[in-house]
Design a binder for these strands. Structure first.
Lengths: 138, 138
DNA sequence: AACCTACTTTATAATGATTCTAAAGTAGTG
DNA sequence: CACTACTTTAGAATCATTATAAAGTAGGTT
């Protein structure tokens, strides 16, 4: 549960002015009880229905991208034609249901610690992601 | 090191007739000492330079897709605008160098076993992929 | 409150990967 | 050799994402 002040801070610290449109985007993303997994078109659909503003795709892309760079959103690695984002930016892993294209958070204790025994000289590790693809039984 | 007979078998078992173009694609993919990571445009470039045939993009997409479905190629989960494939179809994980867009195979013993402690009722697990993103130090 | 300037929004165009289409070509069987 | 189903191909279509440039707005300054 976040309020408008928090959104303004999030935006300013991402180098963005708090505009009407961006505040609406913040509400859609962060004014939630659970973490939120989405694609840009999911978010656009939600904004269209929940908000009175018309917010252009360009603005949505622009804002999501700034939040991702500022680490207020996490992009999940999936070989999909679309990008998936997660409002939960802590280190954690995912199920991806290929039958429904839905992401599900895993708790770290559900995966166990990843013990990487190999290093590559001259490279630094940016992230470690585990993706478990599942399908509906049928 | 595989020969033409093997390629013909691969193609037939994928439901594809062995044509000149598809044999050329097989050579580019499997006539190698090391496993090969590629995007469609990588493969198209290689075919253009190594082979005398002109092979259309549509044929390359078609063949790669059939091999993927038949499990002769593995698609790697990366949030990129392009699809990445791997001729190594065994269970294994990857580094992805974000500075160069290159994939590097990890041996399973380099990652340790992934012990999944959570199941989802009514779903079956199709794959478990670990992706470690790295960047060049500079 | 009016003013100014840099940042924003927006519709639209551009790009790039992938898929589709339909006409011309080829493999494989009889 | 003939026939049919499968292929190849160039080009069009699609879809997500990025770029463009004109009109709008935030926020500081008078």
């Amino acid at each position: 549960m976040e309020n408008k002040d928090t959104f303004v801070k999030k935006l300013r610290s991402s180098g963005l002015r708090p505009t009407r449109q961006r505040i609406e985007i913040c509400k859609a993303l962060y004014d939630r009880k659970k973490t939120f997994h989405f694609t840009i078109s999911d978010l656009a659909k939600i904004l269209k229905s929940k908000s009175n503003e018309k917010i252009s795709l360009a603005t949505i892309y622009n804002t999501v991208s700034a939040f991702k760079n500022r680490n207020y959103l996490k992009e999940i690695s999936i070989n999909s034609n679309k990008s998936y984002f997660d409002t939960n930016v802590s280190n954690h892993h995912h199920f991806f249901n290929e039958s429904t294209d839905e992401l599900i958070d895993l708790k770290n204790e559900d995966v166990g610690n990843i013990k990487l025994k190999k290093k590559i000289p001259g490279k630094k590790i940016k992230s470690v992601e585990v993706l478990i693809k599942i399908q509906n039984n049928n």
